[in-house]
Write a protein that binds this DNA or RNA. Structure first.
Length: 560
DNA sequence: AGAGGTCGCGCC
DNA sequence: AGGGCGCGACCTCT
């Protein structure tokens, strides 16, 4: 059993204590190490336990790890008390634990002052007190509370895996920020120049956008129209006799008018320019690297969010600027139709798993004769997962329910639970937020006598909204767990490959590894083996394949 | 002037 | 259609 090593701030927060902890046994060997010496101490301990790497237990990877990375230290494993507390606090599977039953304390998010940024000049002027000083948080006591909660949980093994995956995610997020995504600013500049003309001086509109703005004004007979103003645009469209409710792409597309083509192109280009234009390049790309902050656990379902630069929304148009360094390659892999595969595995639906044996799951469903075409299969499957209530997807649902009764029943039950106001839980044990107070009150009122018809209708609508959320939650959340296990497994394998190939990007069901060219094939193998391992870690021997689309490329745009 | 809300649209 | 996000721009309110 590997030793736990605890990093604990003392009252002054200037030193840390290292404690060898054998699970619940008494601590031994407490030693106090000044913050400045921590990188060397970590290096020493990691080397001493190379065979069975220690698990560093600390309050918050976001605040601890960057300094270690800057000093050239990589930690093998950790337990992030902040992230794990958040999971255990809300998980139905640990609801009976002392941790879950205790009142909100210093480890709960809203009680802890966020400290994502480096101390700045203004911190000294900020007289708002830290709601919970770090010294009131006792990492050793919290670790014990968390281990107790896991030990007493239903499915403790799954919960343990979730906490390990989440914590490794925190390590990876910090490492990806540290290493950065290779970004060629000259390629990015060329893409922009090609689309809209050279970068204008100051805040002026680039040439192509100015031309399009003129075309729009002419077509709408509105010489002073500002195409960036939705109200202006809406007024002008209505003056042309169109009964439109908004200026959205979807509504404009349906119109028959000369303004449509230039307006849609204008929207596309101005969007690109404002989101990922020259200003973005200036702000986010330095020394050939894009370094967003990844926010582990930033989405309720367990997906990551990002902070800065819109890292998880990089449009296809600029992906060609992601280039491997000379002598390096990008290994790009995404899990094909991850969510339906996850649904097949978690529901134990063997017929759906058989369809997932096909590298293209949707084609597999079509081939099985469930629906006429691949396109129908995709619509139906996404409809089942997202909760389509109308249109083609809803029409296909009965076919899907007949062919894959267990899979459809799983999402239907999740939806019904959400509509009742219940909490739902992913495969590994992350629970959804509770229903809003408003919904609970409304449900209780609607169940009583004398409820007005309008109120009942409104309550049903609200309940169905939440049902769609909980339906999706169990699948999206479990897919996020699979992805985290995939990435954690990959990280471990990459450490065994020469030349330090490293993860540089993660996007829900897709990873990018920056790899020395001569080991790129080994990396590709590691990516595939990791996907298999993730499937086994979550679902054991469930006969579901997790197919990957994988490419070894110089440019991100060349993948997929 | 600044905060907060909404729209619109990029990604999965 | 239907779930989850982030972010910039515009707009309104204070």
């Amino acid at each position: 059993m590997p030793a736990y090593v605890l990093v604990a701030p003392d009252a002054s927060a200037r030193t840390v204590a290292l404690v060898d902890l054998d699970e619940h046994a008494a601590e031994t060997g407490r030693r106090t190490v000044p913050d400045d010496d921590l990188p060397d101490e970590v290096r020493r301990v990691e080397a001493a336990h190379a065979a069975a790497p220690p698990r560093w237990v600390w309050d918050d990877t976001r605040t601890r790890y960057p300094a270690l990375l800057a000093a050239g230290v990589r930690v093998e494993r950790c337990h992030d008390l902040r992230l794990c507390h958040a999971i255990l606090r809300h998980s139905e599977r640990a609801a009976a634990s002392a941790l879950a039953q205790s009142p909100p304390g210093p480890w709960d998010a809203d009680a802890v002052a966020p400290r994502p940024h480096a101390p700045s000049l203004f911190d000294a002027l900020d007289d708002a007190p830290d709601p919970v000083p770090a010294a009131t948080r006792d990492p050793l006591a919290e670790l014990r509370a968390q281990l107790d909660a896991v030990a007493g949980a239903t499915h403790p093994g799954r919960l343990r895996l979730l906490l390990a995956a989440e914590s490794t995610g925190a390590l990876i997020a910090a490492e990806m920020h540290h290493d950065g995504l290779p970004w060629d600013a000259s390629v990015h500049d060329a893409i922009l120049t090609d689309l809209v003309g050279p970068r204008p001086w100051g805040g002026a509109r680039p040439q192509r956008l100015e031309e399009l703005a003129d075309e729009i004004r002419t077509a709408l007979v509105a010489p002073h129209l500002n195409p960036d103003s939705p109200p202006d645009l809406l007024r002008a469209l209505r003056l042309q006799g169109f009964d439109v409710q908004s200026t959205s792409k979807w509504e404009v597309q349906g119109l028959d008018h000369p303004v449509v083509a230039p307006l849609l192109e204008y929207k596309k280009l101005s969007r690109l320019l404002s989101a990922n234009g020259w200003a973005w390049l200036d702000q986010w790309v330095h020394d050939g690297r894009f370094r967003p902050d990844y926010v582990v656990g930033g989405v309720v379902t367990g997906r990551w969010a990002s902070d800065g630069g819109g890292a998880l929304q990089l449009p296809a148009q600029v992906r060609d600027a992601v280039r491997a360094d000379p002598g390096w390659r990008l290994v790009v892999a995404d899990a094909a139709q991850l969510e339906p595969r996850v649904l097949a595995a978690m529901s134990g639906d063997r017929d759906m798993a058989a369809a997932a044996r096909h590298a293209d799951l949707y084609q597999g469903v079509a081939d099985a004769g469930v629906v006429p075409s691949r396109k129908d299969a995709k619509y139906a499957m996404l409809g089942a997962i997202y909760g389509a209530t109308s249109g083609a997807a809803a029409q296909l649902m009965p076919h899907l329910a007949r062919a894959f009764p267990r899979a459809v029943a799983l999402v239907e039950e999740a939806a019904r639970a959400g509509e009742r106001g219940d909490v739902v839980t992913t495969w590994l044990g992350r629970s959804s937020p509770p229903a809003s107070e408003a919904l609970r009150v409304a449900l209780a009122a609607a169940a009583g006598e004398g409820a007005g018809a309008d109120d009942v209708r409104e309550t049903r609508r609200h309940a169905r909204d939440r049902g769609r959320f909980t339906r999706n939650f169990v699948v999206q959340g479990t897919a996020a767990e699979w992805a985290m296990c995939w990435m954690a497994s990959l990280r471990r394998r990459l450490r065994g490959i020469e030349g330090r190939p490293h993860l540089v990007f993660f996007l829900h069901d897709e990873v990018v590894v920056h790899s020395p060219a001569d080991v790129a094939d080994d990396v590709a193998t590691a990516v595939r083996e990791s996907a298999d391992e993730a499937g086994r870690l979550l679902f054991g021997d469930a006969p579901v394949d997790f197919a990957l689309d994988l490419a070894v490329v110089d440019s991100y745009a060349a993948a997929g």
